[in-house]
Simulated assay, not measured.
Amino acid sequence: MIISNKQIQSVMKVYSEQNNAGKNTKTEKSQPAKGKDQVILSSGVQEFGQVLQRAITISDVRPERVQELSKKIQEGTYKVDSKDIADKMIGRMLVDDLL
């Protein structure tokens, strides 16, 4: 196979054009983007955000339960099962170890 000078020149021209195109792409990427960044949340995420905000504003104190337990303590009828306490303590330790 004989390669002519004209064929070599054609290959060099294509190579040069590709090389210049690559350089232009790099400069375009390095320039800062115009406009503002924008975040669009799905409806599911928006709903979750609303539920989370409501959960944050809800008080952890349940007045009815506090009143009920206070009454039992004053009457001396409040009994705590030691097994339940131990189960909760062990469960909490296991969860803390996993995290």
Rank of each mutant, 00 (worst) to 15 (best):
G49Q: 10
L94K: 15
K29V: 11
G22I: 11
G22K: 06
D97W: 06
E28M: 12
L99V: 04
L94C: 04
T57D: 15
S70I: 05
N5K: 12
A21W: 02
E75R: 12
Q31S: 05
K23V: 08
E75K: 15
A86S: 11
V39S: 02
P63E: 07
I56L: 15
K72D: 01
E75F: 06
L99T: 03
L52G: 02
G91K: 10
V80S: 10
R65C: 02
S43V: 03
D97N: 11
F48P: 00
A21D: 09
Q46I: 11
S4C: 04
S70P: 00
E68T: 05
Q46N: 08
V39G: 00
D81S: 10
S43K: 14
S82Q: 11
A86Y: 08
R65H: 05
Q7R: 03
S4Q: 05
T25C: 08
K72P: 01
V66N: 01
A21G: 04
D84L: 14
D37F: 14
M1K: 03
K79P: 01
R54C: 07
K83N: 08
S42M: 03
A86L: 15
V14R: 02
M89E: 05
I58E: 14
I58Q: 15
V14L: 15
Q7P: 01
D96Q: 10
Q18C: 10
T77D: 01
P63F: 03
N20I: 09
I56E: 11
V45K: 10
Q50S: 08
V51Y: 03
K83P: 00
S59P: 04
D87L: 13
T25S: 13
L69P: 02
P32E: 02
Q67A: 15
S16T: 11
Q38P: 00
I90R: 11
D84T: 02
T77Y: 05
V80K: 14
